[in-house]
Design a protein around this nucleic acid. Structure first.
Lengths: 187, 187
DNA sequence: ATTCGTAATGTTAGTAACTAACATTTTTGT
DNA sequence: ACAAAAATGTTAGTTACTAACATTACGAAT
């Protein structure tokens, strides 16, 4: 399975480079494929859509379980907020250069931002389900999930478009803005 | 300009009906146009994309100015939150039946939800700009705008998929969940 | 090393959402 | 009734993506 991964990596690299140089809309899947000496069909076998060349990232798993692990006594938003913080801490700070340029592309392309949001649908649904299972009403659950994931995204894009600081800092700041005004106890 | 508006209304009605019956992806722009005895091109002259047959709504204007009108002394989130509440109050409760079925379609179609989010980009940017102009840092502004608009959307979809209560109630509830824990003073 | 199965890729053909350019009809003001 | 302008039609094209089927590259067992 080394060949497959290799082709995917080449497509990803070429795609991101071309999109950075020419813009997202101006870059076609055909072009990316050609750049790698590969057919268009092969491109779509590796990425379900053109957007995924840029969007493909390894986050998202485990988030729902991190939230489920927070104490059920907290208000919904607070549970999601702390769950996301906990999930983040368990992750490594990303390779600054590559990730930052990737995020920068997304930040500059409304269509990609929308697709990124679409991609989060599964995560958002998972979060909502955890909360609803614990007797939070649906509206509160949706608001909590939406607000916290929104803050996460804002942190990511802000980090990507700036040049200093760590992602972890931004995430803590962004989620902090949603926090209950009396702060940071630990349980 | 009556003919134009008439055609648009017919396309909208036919489009929504067909999409409701067959699903969003299964319904083509060609089909909607044919249903109205009109060419495909005409469809796209009235709606910039297929999604807009369903998404086209009259909200959004004035929101930014409602936020600008809130006292600059409040934290960003609180300003946006109160601004949206104020903007809502200035609006009439929508015609229950049509709007509800419209929202229901959106709620059931991830692609449409994503496009709705994309459509909000302009509003979100306007809100962020108002805040930044008043010396709120960009990250806080993005988080505030994202969280509050996210809550608004959750309220809308929840209202659309349920069958009781008013939109106004849901919006108040949803935005209330983001509120500072010490509640509801008026200034 | 040869053979053989499978994984990766290629080819062809097609659909659907759009866009551009230009022709035609319909509406409207006078 | 007539000319300007608005609305629509037609044709041709691009791009993202899918399905079906053919082909090549690759690794493992003999």
């Amino acid at each position: 399975m080394t060949k497959k991964e290799n082709t995917k990596a080449k497509l990803q690299a070429a795609g991101r480079r071309l999109i950075q140089e020419q813009g997202y809309e101006a870059t076609t899947a055909d072009q990316i494929a050609a750049e790698c000496g590969v057919s268009t069909m092969t491109f779509f076998r590796h990425f379900p859509s053109k957007a995924m060349v840029v969007l493909d990232d390894p986050y998202d798993p485990m988030i729902a379980s991190a939230i489920a692990a927070q104490p059920r006594s907290l208000p919904a938003i607070e549970r999601v907020r702390r769950g996301l913080l906990a999930a983040w801490i368990a992750l490594p700070e990303p390779d600054n250069h590559d990730q930052r340029s990737r995020v920068r592309i997304i930040a500059h392309t409304p269509e990609l931002r929308a697709k990124a949001w679409e991609n989060n649908t599964a995560t958002r649904a998972a979060i909502v389900n955890v909360l609803v299972r614990d007797d939070v009403d649906r509206l509160s659950a949706e608001v909590a999930a939406g607000a916290c994931l929104g803050a996460l995204e804002a942190a990511l894009l802000d980090w990507g478009t700036s040049s200093e600081g760590t992602l972890g800092e931004r995430i803590a700041t962004a989620l902090g803005l949603l926090g209950s005004t009396a702060e940071e106890s630990n349980d």
